[in-house]
Amino acid sequence: MWVCVWLVALCVCWHGGSPTPVTPAVGCQGPEVLRAAEEGLDQINSDLTEGFILSLNRVYDVSQQTGEGAVLFNLTIDVLETKCHVISRKPWKKCEVKDVDDVPVYGHCVAFISVGKSVELRSYKCAIQQVPATVIVDTCPDCPTVVQLDDPIIAETANLILQKYNRMNRLPNYFTLLNVTGASMQWVVGPAYFVEFTIRETVCAKDTPDVDLTQCKMMDCEFAHKAFCTGSHTTLDDGTFQTKLYIEVKCEIFEPEGAKAEEEAHVRGDSGHQSEDEDHKHAHTHLHPYEHHHHPPNSNQASPRLKGSLGIVVVLPPPRVPPPPRASPAASNCPAKRKTNLGLDRFPI
């Protein structure tokens, strides 16, 4: 008996006085894994330059490597597209996921994320695709169905909606169409078309008579406003002629990045002069470039990283039904439970 105890003690001393710690198996529900996934996805969304903010649905698979003072996670996460455009720069937790009646988009991201004192996204690659139209119709026969963005009726719809918005908003300059991001159709009293698009401020002032909006150049300064718009118009079709009825529009305008940077510069006191009013706020209905203070770069500040430099998002066509089988996770206790259930029984995502 004493011989066995002596041998165990000898082995402990041989390995430095204490047993070598064993790294526990990684699972998809561990707190550090969830922290890496949630904060890493925030950084992925911050890196995107187009499309919509992605929401975390679940961690599907994970592996890890331990380095000096940090753990490098290789995560596969399932994502769902939200209703927030990337120009909003909203955190994904504050964005509503697109539901069945919004043409849902799903996919996954493979991301390398370092976790130590902070979480740092190293690289990522995402692939997303729309849920097939047949699945939507089977689940919700009355829901809108996808329309191709190059359909002439979509361009007409977007222009009608933009015309109404230019008439109703109180900003001094006209906006022009930047990019159509989505379109769908639903039969009401006639075909109703729903369009999502982004717009950008132009140099044309509304108080200028007889403005031809097609000739208005986009404002290319850092203080130009952008907005994300949703709208629709319904056509009454009685079999003899078509009458365009209700046009609805809703736009969310976002503060220009240049204006945000200028406000931050004033707060830091980097402007090099004192404001006459210390409580001065930049409430930008719009200021032209010459009305802003251009601050020289601070030599103590690091240059900002270019957006889109850490990875890519690949948009794939809708898959066939049923979708091809997916490889099983390699890690134990994976995948994690889904956060969102869209109720697509034939098409679990």
Rank of each mutant, 00 (worst) to 15 (best):
M219C: 02
T230F: 03
D212G: 00
H233G: 04
D220P: 03
M219N: 05
K206R: 03
D210L: 13
M219I: 02
D220T: 12
V203K: 01
F223V: 05
D212N: 05
H225T: 09
D212P: 06
S232E: 04
A205I: 06
F223T: 07
F228V: 14
E222N: 10
A224W: 04
L213K: 08
H233T: 05
C229Q: 00
A227C: 08
L213W: 09
Q215T: 10
K206Q: 05
A224V: 11
D220A: 09
D220F: 02
A224D: 00
G231Q: 04
C204Y: 02
D207R: 06
A205Q: 12
D207N: 13
D220C: 09
M218H: 13
D207K: 08
D210S: 08
T208A: 10
A205P: 08
V211G: 12
M219T: 01
A224S: 10
V211R: 06
E222H: 08
V211T: 14
S232R: 06
G231N: 02
K217R: 12
D210T: 06
F223I: 07
C229Y: 05
F223K: 09
T214R: 09
A227N: 03
F228R: 00
A205G: 11
Q215A: 15
G231A: 03
A227P: 01
C221Q: 01
D212T: 01
A227Q: 00
Q215D: 13
C216G: 12
A224Y: 09
Q215W: 11
F223Q: 08
A224L: 09
C229I: 08
K206P: 08
A205R: 09
A224I: 05
H233A: 04
T208Y: 03
H225G: 14
C216V: 15
H225F: 15
C229H: 01
H233R: 10
T208H: 04
K226M: 15
F223N: 05
D212S: 00
C216S: 13
Q215S: 10
G231Y: 02
Q215M: 15
C216I: 14
P209S: 09
C216T: 15
T214K: 11
C216P: 14
G231M: 04
S232K: 10
T230G: 03
H233L: 04
D220M: 10
